[in-house]
Amino acid sequence: MSAGPAAVPGTDAGADAVVEVVDVSHRYGRLRPVEVLHDVRMTVRRNEFVALVGRSGSGKSTLCHLVAGLGRPSSGQIRVAGEPAGGRPDWARLALLPQRPALVPELSVAQNAFLATRLRDRPDDEDLLVLLGIDALAGRSTGQVSLGEQQRVGIARALAVRPLVAVLDEPTGHQDDDNVDRVLDTLRQAGSRGTALLVATHDPRVLAAADRVVRMRDGRVVDELRP
């Protein structure tokens, strides 16, 4: 991706917006609150691949967690598909890959990958395991595979039901070059099938694959770069 001119951050996606972050601030603590997000405005459109970039502590992960409904912002609004973020989880609406994939140790690789589809009585997408290079590991327990393989199982789990929105926090953080390519191919395929992607990353290869890059600093969105 060749960086274009900086755009003014905003929420001008209109009816195409599936994620809307409007004037969101967030703080932790009561006695000495620390503000980690400041008046953030951002959108993600249907089928769009948006990458969040910034130094550690810039607020990327916090924003991802709030969009995924793992907490409520101190002020402002976050809407997913027109509804407030949070509430009863629906993996077909929004799926999350945290930095630690939080797999179920009692289940196999395939059982973890297709947990959501089986709960919703949908067929398993075996091609997803092939695309991520973990098909040969399907019957193993997650304790018998590497950290990078566990991360790819988490990616499969997040994308298996073809959610409207997938939020992924550093999805290539434990991948070598070949497997970064696998992950990016999988994300592109998910986008082509209708999933909007919000990805926090430090990886320049992920940034190059994104439709739009939102740069954060000290809890603020400072600019956007487009191809």
Score class of each variant (00 low, 15 high):
S2W: 00
A6F: 11
V8Y: 01
A13G: 13
D16H: 10
V21T: 12
H26E: 11
R32E: 10
P33I: 02
P33K: 05
V34P: 05
V36L: 07
L37Q: 11
H38M: 02
D39K: 09
V40E: 08
M42F: 08
M42A: 11
T43R: 04
T43N: 11
V44L: 04
R45A: 15
V50H: 12
R55L: 15
S61V: 14
C64S: 15
L66C: 12
V67G: 07
V67A: 09
A68M: 06
A68H: 10
G69I: 09
L70Q: 14
L70S: 08
R72M: 03
P73M: 04
V80Y: 05
A81G: 04
P84V: 00
A85Y: 07
G86S: 04
P89F: 01
P89V: 01
D90C: 05
A92G: 03
R93T: 07
P98N: 05
P98V: 04
Q99R: 01
A102Q: 11
L103E: 00
V104E: 03
V104G: 00
P105F: 02
E106W: 09
L107Q: 08
L107C: 00
L107E: 03
V109S: 02
A110K: 05
N112C: 01
N112M: 02
A113K: 01
A113I: 00
F114E: 04
F114T: 06
L115A: 04
A116F: 03
R120W: 00
R120N: 02
R120Y: 03
D121C: 00
P123E: 03
D124S: 03
D124E: 11
D124Y: 00
D125S: 06
E126L: 13
E126M: 06
E126R: 13
D127T: 10
L128Y: 08
L128G: 13
L128K: 03
L129M: 12
V130N: 03
G133L: 01
A136M: 11
G139D: 13
G139A: 10
R140F: 03
T142W: 07
T142Q: 09
Q144T: 02
Q144V: 01
S146F: 08
L147V: 15
G148V: 08
G148Q: 07
E149A: 12
E149G: 03
R152N: 07
V153P: 14
A156M: 08
A158W: 13
V161T: 15
V161A: 12
R162V: 09
P163D: 06
L164R: 14
V165H: 08
V167M: 09
P171T: 03
P171V: 05
T172G: 06
T172E: 04
G173F: 09
Q175W: 01
Q175L: 15
V180P: 02
V180F: 01
R182S: 03
V183C: 08
D185N: 00
T186K: 02
T186R: 04
L187H: 08
R188K: 12
S192R: 15
S192T: 11
T195S: 15
L198R: 13
V199I: 15
R205E: 15
V206Y: 10
L207E: 14
L207I: 10
A208E: 15
A209M: 09
D211V: 09
R212Y: 12
R212N: 10
V214I: 14
V214H: 10
R217W: 11
D223P: 00
E224R: 05
L225W: 05
L225D: 08
P227Y: 05
